[in-house]
Measured scan of single mutants.
Amino acid sequence: MGFKLLSKLLVYLTASIMAIASPLAFSVDSSGEYPTVSEIPVGEVRLYQIADGVWSHIATQSFDGAVYPSNGLIVRDGDELLLIDTAWGAKNTAALLAEIEKQIGLPVTRAVSTHFHDDRVGGVDVLRAAGVATYASPSTRRLAEVEGNEIPTHSLEGLSSSGDAVRFGPVELFYPGAAHSTDNLIVYVPSASVLYGGCAIYELSRTSAGNVADADLAEWPTSIERIQQHYPEAQFVIPGHGLPGGLDLLKHTTNVVKAHTNRSVVE
Rank of each mutant, 00 (worst) to 15 (best):
L97H: 02
D214W: 09
E172A: 14
R46H: 04
A133N: 04
I104M: 02
P152M: 13
S7Q: 15
P107I: 07
H180L: 00
E39Y: 15
V257P: 02
S208R: 10
S56N: 11
T261A: 06
D77E: 04
L217K: 05
E80H: 04
L47Q: 06
V265P: 14
A129W: 10
N71Y: 01
R206K: 09
A21R: 08
E203A: 03
Y231Q: 02
N149P: 14
E101C: 08
H260K: 03
L83R: 01
G89T: 10
W220T: 03
S16A: 06
H117L: 00
S70L: 12
A213R: 09
V108F: 08
V265F: 06
A21V: 14
L47I: 05
A111W: 06
T222F: 09
S62H: 11
I186K: 00
S139C: 15
T134M: 13
V187A: 08
A165D: 13
L13F: 15
Y12W: 10
L204Q: 02
R76K: 13
P190K: 01
I238T: 13
I151G: 10
T153F: 04
T140I: 11
Y231D: 02
L10A: 10
V45G: 11
G32Q: 02
S27R: 13
L106C: 04
N184V: 02
D183Y: 02
E101H: 15
I224R: 01
F63Q: 07
T222Y: 10
L249S: 13
F236R: 09
G32Y: 15
V171Q: 00
G245L: 05
F236W: 08
E225L: 13
L24R: 10
V45W: 01
N149G: 13
L185I: 07
H230P: 01
L247P: 08
S22C: 11
E101G: 05
V194T: 10
V194Y: 02
S31L: 10
S205C: 07
I151L: 08
K91R: 10
Y202S: 08
Q49G: 09
E157T: 08
A129I: 04
P138T: 14
M18K: 04
D79F: 12
L81P: 02
T60E: 03
V189C: 05
S208I: 12
L173D: 00
A90L: 04
L9F: 13
I20R: 10
L82K: 03
E39Q: 14
G198R: 00
A94D: 12
H115E: 00
I40M: 04
G105D: 07
V257L: 05
P170G: 09
S139P: 10
K251T: 04
V212Q: 04
M18E: 04
G198Q: 01
C199N: 00
D118A: 06
L83Y: 00
Y34P: 12
Y68M: 03
L185A: 07
T60P: 11
K258A: 08
G148T: 14
I201V: 09
L156S: 03
I17R: 04
R120E: 12
